[in-house]
Amino acid sequence: MSLALTPAIRDLLDSWLTHERAIKGASEATLRAYGADVTGFFAFQAEYLGGAPGPAALRGLGPRELRAWMADQRGRGVGARSLARRLSAVKGFFNWWAERDGFDATAILSLRAPKHQRRLPRPLTEDGARDMIDGVGEQDARDWVAARDIAVITLLYGCGLRISEALGLDARLIPLPEVLRIRGKGGKERELPVLPAARAAVDRYAALCPHDLAPGTPMFRGIRGGALGPRAVAKVMEKTRMQLGLPSSATPHAMRHSFATHLLNAGGDLRAIQELLGHASLSTTQAYTAVDTARLLDIYQSAHPSARKRA
């Protein structure tokens, strides 16, 4: 696809990705996805227009060219959710470019993404979460590997960490403090209380781990001593959920959903849970929690001033 980019457009794309990394704190995985999505858009336009478009041609794109690209994507089997993500990346690039160089990108920025049904998270039950933590410890005969897997899953569920955040912890944090400072998406920092069970799980793993957990190195290690990858965690959870008869939605990220839902079920404050998860928007936190209507009414009745007044 690099042939679809003129040198000027390549420089623009690189500058935008650098901006996303430096200013917005985008992860390397996010930057790779952005780059692929925007480059794919340029590749289509090169074919559609009969040659790699330069800056002037791209600034002149209108609804016809954009709708043609979207139709091509759908024809290739790209789902509504994936197409919406790709369009978001294209809009992000053009919005940055238009602000930098002072041109009107309304034709692109006003294009609407295809509608798609939002997938609601499916947390585990409290028993399911406990069974998952116990179960991952039975998948490997090596004590240190079993202890490692228990420690990782306990952190996901006990602290509401993203898998990338748990696997990004530095060994210098052993033993875990009572409060963790985590830098999440967009460079947003938050503080998380660490449950005694999570601290104990990490301590046991550290005591058994055969690799040198020196400061400045990853806390969680793979078999050969390198950084533990997210795929390894997903695989041990996949094996465990099949044994336990848990749904396919019982993934590492589901432990984070479960953390939020179970806190709210226990009477936790939604705003406080938002801070613990590191969400910028309360609506995102609401989507993370699966609490039935009866429970929400209970929370309202016990907490809302007007409800207390009537009582």
Rank of each mutant, 00 (worst) to 15 (best):
E20A: 11
I150P: 15
D203T: 00
G50V: 00
V194T: 03
L167F: 05
S2R: 12
K115S: 12
S164Y: 08
P63N: 07
A4Y: 01
A98S: 15
L161I: 02
V291T: 07
I273K: 00
S283Y: 03
E178I: 01
G35E: 14
D298A: 06
D269K: 01
G158F: 11
A227T: 06
G62Q: 01
A294D: 14
E238W: 00
G60I: 02
V38H: 06
A294R: 00
T261P: 13
S302G: 14
G50D: 05
R224T: 08
E178H: 08
G268M: 06
K185M: 11
T6R: 05
P215G: 13
R122P: 03
N265G: 14
V90P: 06
A250D: 07
F41S: 02
L87A: 12
L17I: 01
A141W: 05
D298Y: 09
R86L: 06
R224A: 14
P196C: 13
V136C: 05
E178T: 05
H304A: 12
S110N: 12
G226S: 13
E99C: 13
L264Y: 11
A33G: 12
D104I: 04
P196L: 04
D203L: 06
E275A: 07
L169H: 10
E275I: 01
P218R: 02
V78C: 08
A294F: 05
R100L: 13
F44E: 04
P121W: 00
D37N: 08
S88T: 10
L17N: 04
G51T: 00
L195M: 13
L3F: 10
L263C: 06
I108H: 09
P177S: 11
K188V: 13
A260M: 06
M237T: 03
A4L: 02
E99T: 11
A8C: 09
I108P: 13
I150Q: 14
G79Q: 02
A151D: 07
M1W: 05
G102L: 15
G184W: 10
A107Q: 07
A294N: 14
A307I: 04
V78K: 00
L282V: 09
V90Y: 05
L244Q: 05
E20F: 05
A272M: 07
L66Y: 11
D104R: 01
S306M: 11
A36G: 12
L277P: 07
A303S: 15
T240D: 07
F103T: 04
P247A: 10
A260F: 09
L12H: 11
A307V: 01
T39C: 06
M242R: 14
T251I: 06
L263D: 13
P215K: 00
I182H: 12
V136M: 02
D14L: 08
G278R: 02
E178F: 08
Q243T: 03
